[in-house]
Design a protein around this nucleic acid. Structure first.
Length: 854
RNA sequence: GCGGAAGUGGCGGAAUUGGUAGACGCGCAGGAUUCAGGUUCCUGUGCCCGUGAGGGUGUGGGGGUUCGACUCCCCCCUUCCGCACCA
């Protein structure tokens, strides 16, 4: 092979070094330019290193940022590390090393990998959430929340994960297990730091409307916040001077409330239990308390359980006594922890009523033939059996009933949210220490701002103390401090991993500020983030938390926008083909091959028969081939650096975009990278004589090439705006194909390099300099396209007879309707089909087609 | 169950103010270059019928609107993702 042949290894590292040295991607505030802040969700530096999913969003953001730079924007495109968190601590315990050491090593590895991919990050703004010059400001901002009454300590039932020795947030627990590790969790009551995110529920909901986010994500957040409108209704307890309050969204069904149910945790449970029922109630409450959440959720699918308290309450509208029950299908943490049960119009209440033989009274009209004794009717209808309210529809009925309750003082309108306050403490070592102390007389006081940071102390082991306190309690010297001259103990909980990522996008704006987390003028220039790309797995948690903090900062006058991320985009996961034989053995891509002839087998690990023409090379065993998430165990992981080693960073970048729409899940295909690499080689040979290494001669730009060029410029420009980054690659390929190996005129060749440079920055920079330029193409200007170049002199027009294609004709662009029709009729095949037919209508779509309706 | 996204060749995908379905790439087949492998270049490639010209058929399934539907409307099926006793 000639030494002048296409070989990215000969220039990619050189340009990466040059960009770094030249500060090509330094973000510089320039009041004369519009700003653009492009951000990808920063990675957690795991031990596994970078995988091909990471570069997908980074490449997309990089392309947009390069485009913005070339269209006259001051661009901020930073990168950093979400570096506190449980996995590093687990590794530390396993390896007997400090999490800081492990984390820094991993970061170095990630950074090395990232730098080989040629992203235009401004590395001078790199942040790492576990470093003290970052987390001191996380502490500082926590104090802002605390000052505003949004952080408080409370005894709360929490998810305790015995295996991890920590509590977990509600969001980290699914089906009674920690989502990260699958460890079982249990309920415990513990004193915890909470953040009052519920105070912002309404704004977090409302402000979604103005965001340029995928509708699905907004909807997920709306569901998570879970706003509902209804009423609280007081039910007096018969024979006692007390009442309990229920929450309902259906006050119009109050006449049908035939019993009430309290959650087992409800404070009135003990009071309400009559002597006769006390033993049964206590047994039930204890049983419910011991059930793991897993069991309780499983029970949701089965029969309802519950127990009668023996007491009755009074329906405030009908005056009728209603029995009060206890059941774990009523959640303690939602609404008031008590409900009025309307079995005729609620499926859950219906199931319960049937199980315990409680009365079912219809109060909303149901369709003909619907028997509420057999099945609840939760649909629309008008009120019946409801006295003076009869005939009102749901909306009017809710209003009328609530009005009466309010007039009588037995109820009130109420907006409720599913969103709960955010459990913000963890009993772990590797996180931000809270800047709080506990004084001897029991007060909890913030550490003065001047005394920040509260540094993470050294401990002898990263596990709880013998008496069950968090690991930080092991740092005895650190633990004992003073507050205003009095002895005090430091808070030993640490913040959850989400803390650092709640504001990192702000620190990037002013990463080296030693007086403030970020200077207001920097935030006014760079904020908000214009484009934020990351995985859909952060749809609610990270994005909701960060929005919450941002709104608090807005109220505190620290930021000037009410939302942090104006435009959000979720990239789809990159999957890969996996191969598995009948016995369940996995094969890597090099261990299998396709052979002619399909065979069928039923794998031991599945239920359905598989048809395949893939076989294990060594044993010849047929394998089932399917697309799956990349994982080590499935042997289908693709390492991006392997791709770079073989084909270069540009090929990796382009292939990641060319695979398909950014938001879609899509399978990795190694052969696809090769196709892209071939394209880049063709570009190389278009510019460079691979025998001599000389630049090839410019020629004249043919009309066809000019059209392809301008089509490519248009597609690329519009694709970047819409984040449709796959089709521009096709247009550039078409352009190179159209060139047929002949370099066009210099100006056109350079325009091509300009658009190519956002996708393949190394190759474009190399060729740019070979063309004699001395400054980076990244700082050149973006070309515009000429619509006129996109139209041909002659048009190809489809001719249909009766809606079926019968021929195509070439006509001059200027041809009149009659000329087109004449030409269409003249086509031999068209004439054949028109023969003997009556033309009822002639449809001419300019530039497109002719249809003879017969 | 509720919410969201999506179903197009052997594969990834393109095309929606309704106007030649399958761009581009992969794969495959044939040819050229090469001592050969690889590379590169050219040609072909939805499926069925036909030597060919050409015809039929075709965007998950079924209806509908229209001169014309991947695109709009109704019903259904499948897959993926979220949430799930939230009263």
């Amino acid at each position: 092979m000639s030494e002048h042949a296409f070989d990215p290894a000969t220039y990619e590292a050189r340009w990466q070094a040059w960009w770094e040295e030249q500060g090509t991607f330094r973000a510089v505030e320039d009041p004369t330019k519009p700003k653009f802040y492009g951000l990808c969700m920063f990675p957690y530096p795991s031990g596994a290193g970078l995988h091909v999913g990471h570069p997908e969003s980074y490449t997309a953001v990089d392309i947009v940022c390069r485009y913005k730079r070339m269209t006259g924007h001051a661009v901020l495109n930073p990168m950093g590390w979400d570096s506190f968190g449980l996995p590093a601590e687990r590794a530390a315990v396993r390896e007997g090393r400090h999490p800081a050491t492990i984390t820094r090593e991993r970061i170095a590895h990630f950074k090395h990998q990232l730098q080989r991919l040629g992203f235009g990050f401004d590395w001078s703004r790199e942040v790492s959430t576990c470093e003290v010059d970052y987390y001191r400001w996380t502490q500082w901002l926590f104090l802002v929340l605390h000052e505003r009454g949004l952080a408080y300590l409370e005894d709360v039932p929490v998810w305790w994960c015995p295996a991890q020795g920590t509590v977990l947030a509600n969001e980290e627990v699914v089906d009674g297990r920690y989502v990260e590790t699958g460890d079982l969790v249990e309920r415990r009551v513990m004193k915890q730091w909470m953040l009052r995110i519920t105070a912002y529920a309404q704004r977090l909901l409302e402000d979604l409307d103005d965001l340029d986010w995928p509708e699905g994500i907004k909807e997920q957040q709306r569901n998570w916040i879970g706003r509902s409108e209804g009423a609280e209704v007081d039910f007096p307890i018969q024979g006692a001077d007390a009442h309990f309050t229920v929450y309902t969204t259906r006050p119009d069904t109050l006449f049908g409330a035939t019993y009430c149910v309290l959650s087992p945790e409800h404070p009135l449970v003990a009071t309400l239990a009559t002597d006769a029922q006390r033993a049964a109630v206590e047994a039930y409450v204890e049983a419910a308390g011991n059930k793991s959440e897993l069991e309780r959720q499983k029970a949701a699918d089965k029969e309802k359980t519950g127990v009668f308290t023996g007491s009755f309450a009074v329906n405030p509208l009908t005056g009728q006594p209603v029995p009060v029950w206890i059941a774990d299908y009523v959640l303690a943490s939602y609404g008031t922890g008590a409900i009025m049960a309307v079995p005729a119009h609620d499926e859950r209440d219906h199931a319960f009523a049937r199980a315990f033989d409680l009365p079912i009274v219809q109060v909303i009209s149901a369709p003909e033939g619907h028997d509420v004794q057999a099945e609840a009717w939760a649909g629309a209808g008008v009120m019946v059996n409801s006295g003076r309210f009869d005939g009102l529809d749901a909306a009017a009925g809710k209003a009328a009933v609530t009005d009466q309750l309010e007039a009588e003082g037995t109820g009130r309108r109420k907006v409720n949210y599913k969103l709960r306050d955010w459990l913000f403490s963890r009993q772990r070592y590797w996180g931000e220490p809270f800047p709080m102390v506990h004084t001897a007389d029991g007060r909890v006081e913030p550490v003065a701002r001047e005394a920040l940071p509260v540094e993470l102390p050294h401990v002898d082991a990263f596990k709880p103390t013998e008496d069950g306190r968090p690991p930080l309690a092991r740092a005895t010297d650190w633990l004992h401090t003073t507050h205003e001259g009095e002895p005090a103990l430091r808070e030993t909980n640490t913040m959850p991993q989400w803390a650092g990522s709640c504001w990192y996008y702000l620190r990037y704006m002013d990463p080296h500020n030693t007086a403030l987390p970020f200077a207001p003028e920097k935030e006014r220039y760079w904020g908000p983030v214009d484009l934020y790309i990351g995985g859909v797995e952060h749809a609610v948690l990270h994005l909701l938390y960060a929005r919450f903090w941002h709104k608090v900062f807005f109220d505190a006058g620290l930021v000037h926008t009410k939302e942090p991320f104006q435009r959000l985009f979720n990239q789809g996961m990159i999957l890969a083909y996996a191969h598995r034989d009948a016995d369940g053995k996995w094969y890597g891509p090099d261990e299998v091959e396709q052979r002619p002839g399909k065979v069928r087998f039923t794998p031991s690990w599945g239920t359905d028969e598989v048809e395949t023409d893939w076989f294990a090379k060594a044993s010849g065993a047929p394998v089932s081939t399917f697309v799956a998430k990349m994982s080590k165990s499935r042997l289908n992981v693709v390492d991006p650096l392997d791709v770079v080693d073989r084909h270069g960073a540009d090929a990796l970048r382009i292939y990641e975009m060319f695979m398909g729409p950014l938001e879609q899940q899509k399978p990795w295909q190694t052969s696809g990278v090769e196709g892209v690499s071939r394209f880049l080689a063709r570009v190389w040979r278009l510019f460079v004589d691979q025998e001599t290494g000389d630049l090839r001669a410019f020629g004249d730009t043919s009309r066809e090439v000019r059209k392809a060029l301008h089509a490519a410029i248009k597609e690329t420009t519009e694709g970047i705006a819409a984040l449709k980054l796959n089709t521009p690659v096709s247009k550039m390929m078409e352009l190179v194909n159209a060139c047929g190996g002949q370099l066009p005129a210099r100006a056109d060749a350079e325009d091509f390099l300009r658009i190519l440079s956002v996708y393949a920055p190394h190759l474009a920079e190399e060729l740019w300099h070979r063309l004699g330029h001395t400054t980076s193409i990244a700082h050149d200007t973006w070309p515009s396209w000429d619509e006129a170049a996109l139209v041909d002199d002659t048009l190809t027009i489809a001719v249909q007879v009766g809606g079926k294609l019968r021929g195509t004709i070439e006509v001059p662009r200027t041809a009149s309707k009659d000329e087109i029709l004449a030409a269409a009729r003249a086509d031999a095949n068209v004439a054949r089909f028109l023969e003997g037919q009556t033309i009822r209508k002639e449809i001419v779509v300019p530039g497109r087609l002719v249809n003879f309706v017969v």
